[in-house]
């Protein structure tokens, strides 16, 4: 190769490099502004005693120490785990069942598919307010039905005990989240080659065996991915719990996101609110890591 060729190749590489930097820089700048700087700011403020309207002095890990000693924080951790586990389980089970049903040749299949997405399309606030009315003991429809069917003798306070309230927020979260899992799994089901089922049938496989040997392996990846994504969303859920119960009764539905909000906006303790938010970061980071890794691997 002549010297001129080397120069031209080197110059081309440099140009390509500059082009690459130019193309990627908007994303990097966006990430810096929208994600990295707020994260660093949050981390710094969590190390201060900042209250609303005050500058706040550096106090090291004091907020984290106080939070770790606070029984309410540990109750919130437990509630978050229960809320997330129960809601995700319901979403995955019913999402998969719904997808399997809608993949069959049932009547009004397209209409049913549209109805499946409905809970997901209604704004969260609207749907939660409707559920609040359903659960209400003042003109609430659920109590009305139960009383008229003589299934209960007096009105039930669905949001009045810790366990019932937790059940209610899990139910509403699951109701909203099932469509996402359903649609994801349905997309996976649509990609299964029909000849696989034909081959399995020729080999003498019955319905259950076909499901176990063909369907399940083919939808495994998409189900796992949908489960991880919905777990991350459920862990970060705030609106449903806040609107329905405000974390009550008696902190029975207090989860980490509502606790952080309570510290920040009710108690005006910004430092502690951010510490609560950041303390729950490691498990979420691991989950998001696996999600992105899986997505990258698949692509």
């Amino acid at each position: 190769m002549r010297q001129g060729d080397y120069i031209r190749t080197g110059s081309r590489r440099a140009n390509l490099r500059r082009l690459g930097i130019a193309l990627i820089s908007p994303v990097v700048i966006y990430m810096l502004i929208v994600m990295v700087f707020p994260f660093i700011w949050a981390l710094f403020v969590s190390l201060t005693d900042k209250k609303v309207g005050s500058e706040g002095a550096f106090i090291g890990l004091q907020n984290y120490g106080e939070i770790m000693k606070d029984p309410l924080f540990w109750r919130s951790v437990l509630n978050t785990v229960i809320f997330t586990a129960a809601a995700v389980l319901l979403k995955v089970v019913f999402g998969v069942v719904m997808a399997l049903l809608l993949n069959e040749r049932i009547v009004f299949r397209n209409l049913n598919r549209a109805l499946l997405i409905l809970p997901w399309t209604i704004p969260t606030m609207v749907s939660v307010l409707i559920w609040q009315w359903i659960f209400s003991d003042i003109s609430g429809v659920l109590n009305y039905i139960l009383l008229n069917l003589h299934l209960v003798e007096e009105r039930v306070g669905f949001l009045a005990s810790r366990s019932l309230a937790m059940g209610a927020v899990v139910l509403v979260n699951a109701w909203r989240g099932i469509p996402f899992v359903g649609i994801s799994v349905l997309a996976g089901l649509q990609c299964i080659d029909g000849t696989l089922y034909e081959a399995a049938t020729i080999d003498g496989a019955n319905v259950l065996q076909r499901f176990r040997s063909v369907t399940l392996p083919m939808i495994k990846n998409v189900t796992i991915l949908a489960t991880i994504v919905t777990t991350v969303w459920t862990l970060g859920d705030f609106e449903i719990v806040w609107v329905l119960t405000k974390g009550g009764p008696s902190n029975g539905t207090q989860i980490l996101s509502t606790l952080s909000y309570t510290y920040g906006f009710m108690n005006m303790d910004i430092g502690k609110a951010l510490a609560v938010a950041l303390i729950s970061f490691p498990p979420l980071a691991v989950l998001i890591h696996f999600t992105t890794k899986r997505m990258l691997d698949q692509s």
């Binding site: 707020p38 700011w41 970060g236 998001i288 999600t291 992105t292």
Partner: peptide
């Protein structure tokens, strides 16, 4: 992992 960390923090901040 760093990307995951930043995304997580952004959920809250």
């Amino acid at each position: 992992l760093i990307l995951a960390a930043v995304l997580t923090a952004t959920l809250f901040t």
